[in-house]
Design a protein around this nucleic acid. Structure first.
Lengths: 265, 265
DNA sequence: CTTTCTACG
DNA sequence: CGTAGAAAG
């Protein structure tokens, strides 16, 4: 049994003030992948940096207060690797992987963009260089007899069922045809990964994992499913439960994203 | 009878969220001088911009979110003038005067500085050019048979009794010998103004009007008296009450400065 | 709408 | 320590 949770915390320091630690103490996962930590380890309190009972691995961004991913594990990982080998993104705080017995788990924070901006170009460069790495990761895992799981905020909704207003968002970053096509490659023959939440819930809208803080997006469930756990087929086949932990109320929200939790048998 | 209150609000929008309007509604003054408004009129809610029963005159800084002075009057002023005629400071949001029957009341926010920085040079340039204006203001007032009152944050403690730790602050901006000497000129033959709070309370330490937000400065009354009402002698002679409205508790503080209130008979 | 940084105080 | 703007999301 392996339970993995992934959540974009939108600033770990802010999340900690609003209930993240309480959520973590009730969290039964073996591995927690965090995105948008937005802090260096030295800026975190000891309790937040290394919660009791957890090992913590961090990949901060070189730009202060930006991005940053981490992985918490109940047991010390066999290995920790930062980045995926592309110089532009090595210190961008967007990719970290840890080896656990038989499985490599990664925390990914794919850049967000805005059409017509340099940020979107960066997002596209990331996608372009990251897909070959995903392919390589799967190949390496196969050779070693391991499985791989890439969790995180991919900042792309794949299909119309993955966001509330797909029509209005066809020209918006996060649901552009080329971005959706890229995810199709990740999930198709080329990448060979399985979106385990969708695999277990093929016929529903959502479940969304992100709601804008603007307006009443959360109350109206005007969300996007942009946080995924992408597993190699062997691991995906062991998935017995996959869900998004939508907070019951706005009051207990400590991030604009919700945790995505998956149980593998 | 004329009651005038002056207070550095340290951001009028923030102050309004913390109790400024409640304080104002219990304020019996005829004139309220504000410093560090840190907003343009358009950024203020109607209630804050022009509280019921008040006329409001503003002199914002051209730099957004910086400085800014204002004067609230129960009756419409006869005239409103922004600046004191020195180009460098005309749009710096540091000086505004209004004519009321028989009296000109000004709201002043003298620059703060730090020794060895360009900010300190600016403070000194302000002092150098403002003193001649004070002299001119008094002369004009005398010719017109008027009185003048210059209220505000002068960012200088005059004497040892005007701050808690004078020894430790002798080399700090706000208590430098040259700054203290300048205030002595304002209050001496050259300027001819009267510090009305000190005139009525000659033998006490303080009363302080500013306490840093750092540490426990307010609780320990580790403050500075840097907010003054400087009056022409004729007006000062009519002063029957002069006090600093130190908040009873940290909880009811809505600024790091306290209002200075003076009653003229 | 929110977080974080920065400048200023 | 706190305010406000900016950049980012």
């Amino acid at each position: 049994m392996l339970t993995v949770t992934s959540v974009n915390v939108n600033g770990l320091r802010a999340a900690a003030k609003k209930g993240y630690l309480e959520w973590l103490s009730g969290c039964a996962a073996d591995v927690v992948c965090l995105q948008e930590v937005r802090a260096e380890e030295a800026q975190l309190t000891e309790e937040v940096r290394r919660p009791a009972g957890w090992h913590a691995s961090y990949a901060p961004a070189s730009a202060k207060g930006r991005a940053g991913v981490a992985v918490l594990t109940r047991r010390a990982p066999e290995a920790v690797r930062v980045g995926f080998g592309v110089p532009e993104f090595e210190s961008s705080g967007r990719y970290l992987e840890v080896d656990l017995p038989g499985t490599t788990v990664a925390s990914l924070y794919l850049p967000s963009g805005e059409v017509g901006t340099e940020r979107q170009d960066e997002k596209e460069r990331f996608m372009e260089t990251f897909l070959p790495y995903l392919v390589e990761l799967r190949a390496k895992a196969a050779v070693d007899g391991r499985e791989a799981l890439v969790c995180g905020d991919w900042n792309i909704a794949h299909q119309e069922a993955d966001l509330k207003n797909w029509r209005a968002n066809r020209t918006k970053s996060g649901f552009l045809p080329e971005e959706r096509a890229w995810l199709t490659r990740v999930l198709g023959e080329e990448g060979g990964y399985v979106d385990v939440v969708r695999a277990l819930h093929p016929d529903q809208d959502g479940p969304y994992s992100w709601w804008s803080y603007r307006g009443r997006a959360f109350d109206n469930d005007t969300g996007w499913r942009i946080d995924y756990q992408m597993a190699t087929p062997g691991l995906a086949g062991r998935c017995v439960k996959a869900q998004v932990e939508r907070a019951a109320s706005h009051a207990e929200r400590w991030s604009d994203h919700a945790p995505v939790t998956v149980v593998f048998d």
